[in-house]
Design a binder for these strands. Structure first.
Length: 479
RNA sequence: GGCCUCUUAGUAUAACGGUUAGUACAUCGGGUUUUCAUCCCGACAACGCGGGUUCGACUCCCGCAGAGGUCACCA
């Protein structure tokens, strides 16, 4: 069987980390089975439609590397892939239901419905429209909503994540199929679309679980085959037990990209939130995820979003790319993340800086704050030097002497290279009788005036003889 | 309120009747000649509660509690 999955978002805004997973899992399943992944835009709610949201969605999927085989941009044999362009199709299927007596036009004014709803809520009973079903219904015409005529009964079905399910007649209702504006509801449109597009696995959030019996009734009434149903548990906000949503500050996926999180790390983290393959592996490439993914190992409970772990994974990925693909490969990802002061420097120099700083990065945007002193002379901050925990017991004149001794030693150094620099530093240690913490802190801070920096010899190597000596001399004069 | 789902350390999870309940993040301690990281070593820390079934239960069954979802002309 050819597996066909889909991601079917509404273009109401950006995709955030709480809802990308319903794109990732269908993608993994489709790729694993050499099947088809469809992107369908569910834009039937004109009020919530947001201009540009479709592009935002496409951008997010592309960044994560979740390409689709059918849908906007790429086309396909089952289009259109925007529900707003499928009006005729929905109406055609709606007419079938009218013909078979399973749908009726509803003339009830909305105030009346609101009243019914209120009655039920006051009596603390569930609101079922079928209990208020109008007896005399007109012919369906524009301006009138079309409702399904429920014939409630028991349903049994299997959910690939939740297991065997059962629901009684009490949950089935006369749901709206076509709204009065002529657009279909999600409830109706997705049934028709999934069937026409050959979707074999419907993967969506658990919030649809309670309406599933209505969908089963619809498949039956339309004489359509049931796809496999896969309910994905929610991703929960870091605090509390609420589903992670925009209101809890769920950031858009692309915001993480702009903050310097790698797509590999994001995909890795999200895929493993609520799914695991039973091994103790933590780092997964996209190909490994595709290979190892399985529906039956998706958790049935919600998982809390933990940004700390995402950032840890990002660090792992930064180092992995550097170690396995080389400095150039990682450098290629850093283009937008250098401080302004780096603009005039060439690629070779920046690659060197990256090479000695990369294992201190959590995100690429850390480059902006951590590398400035490689590109511009830092402002001399004597307080920082004098109050350093290793240097504060040394008098200022001793510091000056020590610095001058170091300058002399480094000035005499023949080869300005990491190894030779380290050798010179070691000799300096022996000659001055200072502890590494004292001597190295003095030089390190004098060069960077930063809270931390890479190994001293590497820093001096990258900075070069001229800059290093100039900075040290400047500090020696200032003390 | 009805219906439905979920419940292992702070977090994500492993275990599919018999383990000192494993792993990772976080936290705390130590090591790798300065700092901050990386890396390595170590520590802390969990089966929601109550009944069964069984020689034996985190695992199976039944209650309870807690949390979440749903009951839209939103998806």
């Amino acid at each position: 069987m050819n597996i066909v999955t889909r991601f079917a978002p509404s273009p109401t805004g950006y995709i955030h980390i709480g809802n990308v997973r319903s794109a990732i899992y269908p993608y993994l399943l489709a790729r694993q089975n050499h099947g088809t992944m469809i992107l369908r835009i569910e834009d039937t709610d004109r009020a919530r439609y947001v201009e540009g949201a479709t592009e935002l969605i496409e951008d997010t999927l592309e960044w994560l590397g979740l390409n689709w085989d059918e849908g906007p941009i790429v086309g396909g044999d089952h289009g259109p892939y925007f529900q707003s362009e499928r009006q005729e199709i929905y109406h055609e299927w709606a007419r079938k239901l009218i013909a078979s007596g399973r749908a009726y036009a509803d003339p009830t004014p909305s105030e009346k419905i609101e009243e019914y709803r209120k009655q039920c809520s006051e009596q603390k009973i569930p609101f079922l429209y079928r209990n208020f079903r109008p007896t005399d219904t007109p012919e369906w015409q524009p301006g009138l909503p079309l409702r399904f005529k429920a014939e409630p009964k028991d349903y049994d079905w299997h959910d690939e994540v939740m297991g065997d399910m059962h629901a009684g007649p009490e949950v089935q209702d006369d749901i709206i199929l076509i709204k009065k504006d002529g657009f279909p509801t999600y409830n109706f449109a997705h049934i028709v679309d999934d069937a026409l597009m050959g979707v074999t696995h419907v993967m969506r959030g658990v919030e649809y679980l309670s309406s599933t019996p209505n969908y089963l009734a619809l498949y039956e009434a339309l004489n359509l085959e049931r796809p496999k149903l896969v309910s994905l548990p929610h991703i929960l906000a870091p605090q509390g037990n609420k589903k992670l949503g925009k209101r809890d500050g769920a950031k858009s996926v692309t915001e993480y990209r702009d903050d310097g999180v790698l797509a590999e790390a994001m995909l890795n983290y999200l895929a493993c939130l609520g799914w695991n393959d039973g091994t103790e592996q933590e780092i997964y490439t996209k190909d490994e995820l595709i290979k190892n993914f399985s529906l039956d190992r998706i958790q049935s409970s919600g998982a809390r979003y933990d940004e700390t772990k995402l950032l840890w994974l990002n660090g792992q990925w930064l180092r992995r790319i550097f170690d396995e693909q080389g400095a150039e490969a990682l450098y290629a990802r850093t283009t937008d993340f250098w401080p302004a002061s780096a603009a005039s420097y060439d690629d070779d120099y920046k690659v060197k800086v990256l090479s000695i700083i990369y294992d201190r990065l959590k995100t690429l945007s850390d480059l902006r704050t951590m590398t400035d002193y490689f590109f511009t002379d830092p402002e001399i901050d004597l307080d920082m030097l004098i109050n350093n925990k290793f240097l504060k017991k040394i008098s200022e004149s001793s510091l000056e002497d020590l610095l001058k001794t170091a300058i002399q030693k480094l000035t005499d150094l023949r080869n300005w290279q990491a190894d030779d620099l380290q050798a010179a530093l070691n000799e300096l240690l022996a000659e001055t009788g200072k502890k590494p913490a004292e001597l190295f802190s003095l030089i390190r801070i004098s060069l960077s005036f930063a809270p931390f920096s890479p190994a001293l010899n590497l820093t001096m190597d990258v900075l070069g003889r001229e800059t290093t000596l100039a900075r040290l001399n400047a500090v020696a004069r200032a003390i």
